[in-house]
Design a protein around this nucleic acid. Sequence first.
DNA 1: TTGTAAGCGTTATCAG
DNA 2: CTGATAACGCTTACAA
Lengths: 347, 347
Amino acid sequence: MTVTIKDVAKLAGVSPSTVSRVIADSSRISEKTKIKVREAMQQLGYHPNMIARSLASQSTQTIGLVAPSSTDLVFQNPFFPTVLRGISEGAHTKQYSIHMTTGKTEKEIYDDVVKMVQGRRVDGVILLYSKVEDRVLSYLRERNFPFVVIGKPFKHVEEITHIDNDNFRAAKDVTEHLLRLGHERVAFVGGNLNFVVTVDRVLGYEKALRNAGISLRNEYVIHEEFLREGGQEAVNALLSLEDPPTALVVSDDLMALGVLNSLNELGIQVPKDISVVSFNNVMLAEMSRPPLTSVDINIFDLGFEAARNLMQMIENPKEPVKRVIIPYNLVKRSSCGPVESAIVEST
Amino acid sequence: MTVTIKDVAKLAGVSPSTVSRVIADSSRISEKTKIKVREAMQQLGYHPNMIARSLASQSTQTIGLVAPSSTDLVFQNPFFPTVLRGISEGAHTKQYSIHMTTGKTEKEIYDDVVKMVQGRRVDGVILLYSKVEDRVLSYLRERNFPFVVIGKPFKHVEEITHIDNDNFRAAKDVTEHLLRLGHERVAFVGGNLNFVVTVDRVLGYEKALRNAGISLRNEYVIHEEFLREGGQEAVNALLSLEDPPTALVVSDDLMALGVLNSLNELGIQVPKDISVVSFNNVMLAEMSRPPLTSVDINIFDLGFEAARNLMQMIENPKEPVKRVIIPYNLVKRSSCGPVESAIVEST
DNA sequence: TTGTAAGCGTTATCAG
DNA sequence: CTGATAACGCTTACAA
């Protein structure tokens, strides 16, 4: 039924091993037989059985992908398809394939990872997120299995190859941008603190304030689990304060969209009454009203580099640990303005 | 190094085949030995090598996913992560894994598919799109390889299992909804006509108009390749008409967002001056200003059913061809209004 | 430069 | 109910 290496060997009048060597384009095979064998392959429509090859060579040429549990934000976020595209293109450069976990809960995902790692289905793994506590990461580390994380590992940063932005500095930058516009009451709206990216961004925000000699206020820092609803609740909480902020640093474009909508419903104008800046710069940032000033973190590159570095680790087991920092840049649109206008307004 | 079935056999004092049977939970093994073997597995931390198992059993328990080339709309669209989540959860119910193509261009994708099919890496394939001409689909059909398509196949509909919405009727419905609101100048803004879904939707739109005795106008049907820019250009074209439409049927939420923005920039109010209805009902539909009236096509279910049906086909080769129609429903929000207001406005 | 033969870790077919 | 033994299709020493 299926045409194997043996059929090709027979037709070409050589041994199976020779065919195998032709597939691998071994230098120790004469051009003449290579051509002969390739013709036989053509003629029979031969395609190597990757499974058999994997079993024999103990390598699959495939990358395992681990997304956070689908209840978390990543999956709903344009971040996901974009980083996936980056990984995909990166993998393609070396002909790697992609294998995905299908689990929903953390436990299911953990089991998936064990299955794909011990089941020898993948040569390495990319973690699409970085959480404060993570069984999956611990497992991979313990087994010494090749993996890279997108984001900054919470522990053992020096020992784990990861691809990240400098989220601390980015948050500091945007906060300073707001400060420079004259804002002094700047609040932070972030996601789940279990994600390291959230932690980094609050820290950067706080640093900027501290540098500017502005004291931190607990009421100004809000963390919400969900994107839409979160934005809404954050606005409610913030605006019911005695001293509501005049500017908001929001940790995710989607959440910022929620914020914008709530503000709009309350009749509060952006950026006249309140300034908003956010992160990721997904396509929507530019389609919102007003268009969002947002930090472009080059999501595609995060994925692409993750794939590239993982493949390097797979192919060279003694590859040193790396920290790859993808540059970011602030894309200024129309959601930020000087604080003066707000003050003028209230006078 | 790695613990195999043989190690387990030795420790449990049975033969490798017995261990294999315990893994498969064969009914012809005594409970006693099952327990004994399982204990040995535990003790050694045994996990089956899926690759070896696949080679021996000629089945991989994995589903191949084929997305359209990333230059097309699907990848940028929230549709993609959602349908993926559906497939993922569907696959998980039977412990199937997911394998993805990494190609960018059509040719790369085609090669990926051949490699994963002939390479025996997957037991079946899901096509995440349906195009008018598609080498991948032809290839799968010729080889008689199990596959399902999400969307309606252009040719051989009766012979290909597919999961779809009744896009024709949905488009007809929404157009009639607009008609009922008094609109007579209704335009259609759609995506690439190579996608069957686009074709179905224009057809439904046209049918509704014809039923209502309204003559079709070519200038009222616009097709755009890209989402944002497309929305913008469509608006420009439509509004420069002598007789601009008072209502728009837009084939995709994201494009509708582009439309909304262009309209907004031109100072045209929705729904007062013009009504807009779109398709898919992704999260953004509800976050736009005004919130979009949109057809919820139950994207998650499309994916879930695709996985379920494919697995059925894989497990039962003589499973009959099926057409699964996922229901849709119109979610009314604030982007549609009676035509009267527009008329009043212009008087 | 090429062939022979022994794996890779399972499952499946026969016996018993 | 359980055990040998032969596949599964390929890679890779080791020989020649």
